[in-house]
Design a protein around this nucleic acid. Structure first.
Length: 295
DNA sequence: AGTTGTCAAGCTAGT
DNA sequence: ACTAGCTTGACAACT
């Protein structure tokens, strides 16, 4: 089991610098990419020191990575030294890496153009992980998408679009249950058709489920991971007690996490701690998991 | 130096 | 009709 946190270390310099389209220049974007890659290196070194071996790289590591404005920018070649350096650190320390495209990626949209930009964005994420020469355990995680008044039809569109993707993209894509439309059971139904692994999200399960127990839901999700996909991934987060439904808490609820780890003691998986204070909550999670599971 | 409106992109539920 | 929330603020123009 590996434990990690997404995208940002609040103690270190941001790896998510970006720029506006209006201020785009090759020189500026090049400077920002170099800054982001260097920041990721520092975060990974920090994480290794603290035994946090799961990390999600933010989508803006290459700003406008799927936009036509970067089409002429051969960043894979331009930054091959920095990418190789990251690649070596990741492999030598057996770090698990994931990415999570943002809300604009909707493969099941009825709008063809939205589907096309979504596919391009998925391709960019896959290309980044490919540029690090990571195997198929490094994943790009997506939500199924919108409901559009007809969930069955929307699910069929997802299956159809996914089926036509190139194999190198399929090798990395995984779906995650969301908090409003697509439950674990819905994701499972999709996975039965196309064999896509399912990330289990604890908070989304709390917000939306089909009455099955958490262990039953976890079993369904975990059963979709093949050995080439690596250990199942879990997104762990807590509801913000003062916020609206679905809002992430500012720090981890250690009692709840302890309960979760005890419940799942027999299972092996990697956990992404999706909490606002990032590495701070991940430290607490690691300490609790270590004391219960003894690794 | 600090503040604030804005930023490529979508969708849902709540007000 | 409008907005908060989503994996995450950060940029850039202004005072």
């Amino acid at each position: 089991m590996k434990i990690g946190y997404p995208c940002i270390n609040t103690r270190l310099y941001t790896p998510n610098r970006t720029l506006r389209l209006s201020s785009y220049s090759e020189r500026y974007v090049t400077e920002i990419i170099q800054s982001n890659l260097s920041a990721i290196k520092l975060i990974l070194e920090f994480n290794i020191k603290h035994n946090l071996l799961f990390f999600r790289i933010g989508s803006s590591v290459i700003p406008f990575g799927s936009h036509k404005i970067t089409r002429e920018l051969n960043w894979v070649d331009l930054f091959k030294d920095s990418l190789k350096e990251l690649s070596d650190i990741i492999k030598q320390n057996k770090i698990r890496i994931s990415m999570h495209p943002d809300q604009f990626v909707v493969l099941n949209s009825p709008d063809k153009e939205i589907v096309e930009t979504s596919i391009r964005e998925a391709e960019y994420h896959v290309r980044f992980l490919d540029s690090l020469e990571l195997d198929s355990t490094a994943k790009v995680q997506l939500h199924v998408g919108g409901r559009y008044d007809d969930k069955e039809l929307a699910i069929q569109r997802f299956i159809s679009v996914y089926s036509n993707l190139n194999q190198n993209i399929k090798n990395r894509l995984v779906i995650e249950n969301d908090d409003r439309v697509y439950s674990i059971k819905d994701c499972y139904k999709i996975s039965e058709e196309i064999n896509i692994p399912i990330v289990f999200d604890t908070l989304h399960y709390q917000c939306l489920n089909d009455g099955e127990s958490i262990l039953k839901a976890i079993d369904m999700a975990f059963s979709t991971w093949k050995s080439k996909d690596g250990l199942p991934m879990v997104d762990y987060s807590n509801q913000d007690p003062k916020g609206k439904k679905g809002k992430h808490a500012s720090t981890i609820n250690t009692e709840d996490f302890k309960k979760f780890i005890e419940e799942t003691k027999e299972k092996n998986f990697d956990i992404m701690i999706e909490i606002k204070d990032k590495q701070e909550s991940a430290f607490k999670a690691l300490s609790i998991a270590t004391s219960i599971r003894g690794f």
